[in-house]
Design a protein around this nucleic acid. Structure first.
Lengths: 206, 206
DNA sequence: CATTTTTTGTGCGTATTTTCACAGAAAAAA
DNA sequence: TTTTTTCTGTGAAAATACGCACAAAAAATG
């Protein structure tokens, strides 16, 4: 059975399946089952089968799933069969760490432009990127066709900068600033905030 | 009405309420409503009221919620009325950026120990912390009573290091390594992985 | 070749989560 | 004071998500 509108919660699990499957692939594992995959990531086998069935029939009864094939299918579903250009906005410690992180390139994400508003930083090079003036975002981002931004500016300016990014044609923002952004409904925002995660965990501690 | 076991999904929203309320508090806003709070963070008013009602009655009909009071209550619910010590394990670029991040201290989290296994790094100081040999974790972590760790080591060793942390008495791990950790059920793990988040968003882009 | 084992995809029931909508209480307005 | 407005807390309904359990298919075994 194929797609109606797939629930976002299902979409959100697909990258985790993909991560585990790519790990298996690197280990030389050719075939896996919903059972085995589930145990690897702590999700029930039934749920994995249900989730995948939203997109097609990828397994074989008695055998399970070809790891390589399922990796391909998930990459295709998640639109990962192309390079995605990223803008990195805010070159503090975190921005610098992200600029140097190899993981993006390894997964088809390329940081194509880096911005900051600090004259001290503009013009400097980090990991092969020249930091550009954030006043140039409106010009540069559309010219490079960039659709995704990572936002690592201080919370105090995050909303304003996010609006500038949307204005520049950005469609998805990975927000590292500890604030919730208020943006049009068609802009996809994902938040990464360690404080929020820590506070979630302290609830369960003594 | 007061607590049965509160669903984890509800607990996970509390830090977001708290974040928005603390922001209001800094802005000098004395009172808010479920409506206003919901608009600030993109959650329905009814959901916020339902969530809060799991823990008590914090609002007043006709008036709404006292911001200061609700901040206090949420801090109390989330066990944030004390300082939590953190261990930071893996002093690469990301570990260094986290060591320097002011946000932890501002929210009652104190990075009390930093570890790495690289002899080049051990003994160096970062943001007032001396990097210690990760072979010492088993001794140092219990002696400082640390219960929470942030894990910023390479994926290839993350599982092993996580097991060492559990062995050292760690009860909660904020995992930055791009791999799912397999640990006892009573250990709380939260993952922060930008690749997973980006792949979630690309699904919705062209 | 027949039997047993493995494992998928899915219909259906259950559980969880969200939203609706309203009584009741407080505040504001008249 | 009385009436109207605002806004909570919550029971009930609706919507979503999850998991069981099984037919069917493939592979393995005997």
């Amino acid at each position: 059975m194929i797609t109606r509108t797939v629930p976002d919660i299902v979409v959100g699990r697909l990258p985790r399946y993909l991560q585990a499957l790519e790990h298996m692939y690197r280990e030389g594992i050719k075939t896996t089952s919903s059972q085995e995959l589930g145990e690897a990531i702590g999700i029930s086998a039934a749920q994995i089968r249900k989730d995948l069935s939203q997109f097609g029939e990828f397994g074989k009864q008695g055998t399970g799933y070809s790891v390589a094939f399922l990796v391909e299918q998930l990459q295709s579903i998640l639109k990962l069969t192309r390079i995605w250009d990223l803008a990195l906005v805010g070159m503090g410690d975190l921005g610098n760490a992200l600029a140097r992180y190899q993981g993006f390139a390894e997964h088809g994400f390329r940081i194509t432009a880096a911005f900051d508003n600090d004259p001290e930083k503009i013009g400097k090079e980090v990991a092969g990127l020249i930091i550009q003036d954030s006043r140039e975002m409106k010009r540069i981002i559309p010219s490079l066709g960039i659709k995704i931004a990572m936002l690592t500016v201080p919370a105090s300016v995050a909303q304003m900068v996010a609006e500038e990014l949307v204005d520049a044609g950005i469609r998805a923002i990975l927000n590292y600033a500890p604030i919730s952004l208020n943006l049009p409904d068609d802009i996809h925002v994902e938040n990464i905030d360690p404080i929020i995660k820590l506070q979630h965990m302290t609830y369960y501690l003594d």
